[in-house]
């Protein structure tokens, strides 16, 4: 797990965005901006994803979908809210169907501002997410090691 920094996989989900941030997320993965040079890769499968990019706010219909996607991702995981709608609800905050930003249902680690968020900003968010992911996976490894050590300790002789 030493070189995990080089290979986290991205999962992108469109909450209820206007599509602007979605195509910017895709654009930042294509060669002109090329976020893949930082080692990330786009995937469509939550079971193999490490970083979740959410665009758009949360509404009553997609609340459970986002929760389920987050749950399906293996630990450790990082969530990035892309665009102002995913951060706070944005221009649609007052709509009857919008509950708020992505942090209403999942813990968000990194907020990327912008309407629509620019590819440069998204890449900045992704780089921060990669670092945080490295940190978390080290913590995760330590925890696993400690637990294994705890499991191997000699039980006290019962009197």
């Amino acid at each position: 797990m030493a070189n995990i920094k080089r290979s986290p996989w991205l999962l992108h989900y469109d909450g209820s965005s206007c599509n602007g941030c979605d195509i910017e997320v895709l654009a930042s993965l294509t060669p002109v901006y090329d976020a893949e040079r930082f080692g990330v890769m786009n995937t469509g499968d939550p079971l193999q994803a490490d970083i979740l990019l959410i665009t758009g706010g949360i509404n009553t219909q997609n609340r459970d979908v986002v929760k389920q996607l987050y749950k399906q991702m293996p630990r450790p995981k990082v969530v990035v809210a892309v665009g102002v709608c995913a951060c706070t609800g944005g221009v649609f905050k007052d709509c009857y169907n919008i509950l708020g930003g992505a942090d209403e249902v999942v813990p968000v680690d990194i907020y990327v501002p912008g309407c629509a968020a620019r590819p440069q900003a998204i890449i900045d968010g992704i780089i921060q997410a990669v670092e945080l992911f490295q940190q978390r996976s080290e913590e995760h490894d330590r925890l696993v090691r400690d637990m294994k050590a705890w499991g191997k300790r000699k039980p006290k002789a019962e009197s």
């Binding site: 219909q61 649609f92 709509c95 009857y96 169907n97």
Partner: peptide, 24 residues
């Protein structure tokens, strides 16, 4: 899944502001 209900913002924003909602 992406229903926001932005048409309802017509009751909360005036007709000049609504142009920015329509664009989004």
């Amino acid at each position: 899944f992406i229903h926001r209900g932005l048409e309802s913002l017509a009751a909360k924003r005036d007709f000049n502001q609504l142009i920015y909602v329509a664009e989004r």
